[in-house]
Design a protein around this nucleic acid. Structure first.
Lengths: 256, 256
DNA sequence: GAGTGGTCTAGACCACGCT
DNA sequence: GCGTGGTCTAGACCACTCT
C-alpha cells in the first residue's frame, strides 16, 4: 500500500482486501475496515485490533490508521474508548433511542415506543417497493405492520418492508416474536447492520385505518416519516413508512 | 499555552484570548478561532491566516492547528481550499439552499423559495417568545410574516421573530426591502452569524389564515417546522415557525 | 505494569492556485 | 516559483483500564 518515497521500503503489502492506489491511504484503510466489518471478520460489539496492529496489517503508520478510525467514529460506525480499545458499533437500545429514533416528547423526553404487531406477511413487492429497495426481478418482501405507543397512547402506525432474501424467516414462527427494536434483530440474527437512514417528512391526512388505530378523526394531520435504511455498504435493506400523531411529540433535527 | 515538557521552551504565550489550561490545546485553538470570528477579527468570507501563522500566534504546532481547523470545517464554520487557504464560512445563497433549507421537491430538486412579506412590526414579545429567544425583561422583538412560493405556488407561511436589540432597523424603511435570504442580511448588515439551528417538526391542521394564504382547505395537514437559530456562541437569535404544504415537497433528513 | 487510545510535535513530500 | 492546504510518517508523553 506504500506509494510515496517518503519512507524506507520495509514490509510488502499483506492486507490486500482493498484496491491499492485508490485515493489517500487513510481512505483505503477506512474502506478496508468497513469491508472487514461487512465481511464479518469483525462483528458488531467486538473489539478491533489496536491501532498499532492495524497499522501493521495495512502497512501504514499508526497516524494514518488513527485518521481512518476517527472518521469511522464520527460516522458512528465504531466506538473508541481510551484504555480499552475500539469497538464495532452495535445496535443497543440506546443507539436506537438516541440515533435512530428522532421523535421526542415536547418536554424533551426520550422514550422508545412499545409496539404491537398487526400483521406480518411474505408477498410480492409493489413496483414502488421494488424501486425503493432496489430489488431484483422476482424477489419477495416481508411486510410488517405495527402500532407503537408513546406516553401510553397509540401514536405511530408503521409499515416496514424488507427483502425476504436477507431475512428468510423474519416473523416466524409467530409475528409476536418480533422484538421492539428491529435493527438489533437484523444485526444479531441476520448479520445485517443498519448504518444510516434517509428520512423524508411530510404532513398528511389520516386515512380511515390510521385514524381508527390512532384514535383520531379521519383527516387529522399526521406526520409521515418515510425512511430508507442503508447498510454499511449503502445497500437499502428496509423501507419504512410511519404515520405519527404529533400532539405531545415532535421530530427533532439539527441543522449546521 | 505550552504545558508539556515535550518541547523546548521558546516563545511566550502571545495569544491569550483563550484561558490556558482548559482542556486539550486543539480545543483551545478551536475556541480561540471562534472567539476571534465572533469578535469580528476575522469576518465571514475572509481568509484566515495560514496554518503556520496560526500555529505561531497560538504557540502550538501546525498539526494542532490543523486538528482545530479540520473540526471547524466539519462544523461548516470555515471552508478549506487547497492552494488558496482557509476562509470563514459566509451565508451564500448556496449555503442557504443546501445547509439551511431542508425542503426539497419530491423529485429531489433543490430550490430556494421566493418570498412575499405580509407584515413587519416591532412589538413586545409574548411570554413564549421571551423564553425561546432568552430575552431580557423589557426587550422588544421584530416580527415578520411572509409567504414563500415553491414551484410557482404558495407553499410556506412563515413567522420570523428576532430580538430588536440585535437588528435595530430591520425592515426599515419598508418591509419590501427585506431580502429573500435573511441570514445573509443578518450577517452582512448586523454582524450576526447564524451557525446552527434546531428544528422541531410536527403535523398540524391549517388554520383559517394559513389556509387562505396557501389556498388549501381549513384543516388541511401542514408540516410545522419550528426553528431556533443560534449564533457561533450558541446564543438564540431567531425564532421561526413555518407551515408548509407538503404536496409535492418534503423535508429531507439523514440519520446516522 | 502492560496495553490502549488521546494529545502533541517535527518534518517530509504532494497537489493545487496563483502570479 | 511560491505559498497554501493535504497526506504521511515517526516518536514522545499523557490518561485511562484492567490485571
Amino acid at each position: 500500500m506504500r506509494r510515496r518515497s517518503n519512507v524506507a521500503e520495509t514490509a510488502p503489502d499483506i492486507a490486500t482486501l482493498t484496491r491499492p492506489g485508490a485515493g489517500p491511504l487513510y481512505a483505503q484503510v477506512h474502506a478496508g475496515i468497513i469491508q472487514r466489518i461487512v465481511a464479518g471478520v469483525w462483528k458488531p460489539g467486538k473489539l478491533l485490533p489496536s491501532e498499532g496492529r492495524l497499522a501493521e496489517e495495512f502497512g501504514v503508520s499508526q497516524g494514518t490508521v488513527r485518521k481512518a478510525l476517527d472518521a469511522l467514529a464520527a460516522e458512528n460506525l465504531v466506538l473508541r474508548q481510551q484504555g480499552k480499545g475500539t469497538f464495532v458499533a452495535a445496535h443497543t437500545p440506546e443507539r436506537a433511542l438516541f440515533h435512530f429514533f428522532k421523535i421526542i416528547g415536547d418536554d424533551g423526553s426520550h422514550q422508545l415506543p412499545t409496539g404491537r404487531i398487526l400483521s406480518c406477511a411474505r408477498r410480492r413487492p409493489s413496483q414502488e417497493e421494488t424501486q425503493k429497495l432496489a430489488l431484483a426481478p422476482g424477489a419477495k418482501v416481508i411486510h410488517i405492520q405495527r402500532v407503537r405507543d408513546l406516553a401510553g397512547r397509540p401514536a405511530i402506525v408503521e409499515k416496514v418492508v424488507v427483502p425476504a432474501r436477507l431475512f428468510p424467516d423474519l416473523g416466524q414462527p409467530s409475528p409476536d416474536t418480533l422484538p421492539n427494536t428491529l435493527y438489533k434483530l437484523y444485526e444479531e440474527k441476520y448479520g445485517v447492520t443498519v448504518a444510516q437512514a434517509i428520512e423524508r417528512l411530510r404532513a398528511v391526512a389520516a386515512r380511515k385505518n390510521e385514524a381508527a388505530l390512532l384514535n383520531v378523526p379521519v383527516g387529522a394531520p399526521l406526520l409521515e416519516v418515510e425512511r430508507i435504511a442503508l447498510t454499511l455498504d449503502r445497500t437499502p435493506v428496509e423501507w419504512r413508512v410511519s404515520h405519527c400523531d404529533t400532539r405531545g411529540h415532535h421530530y427533532l433535527a439539527t441543522v449546521v
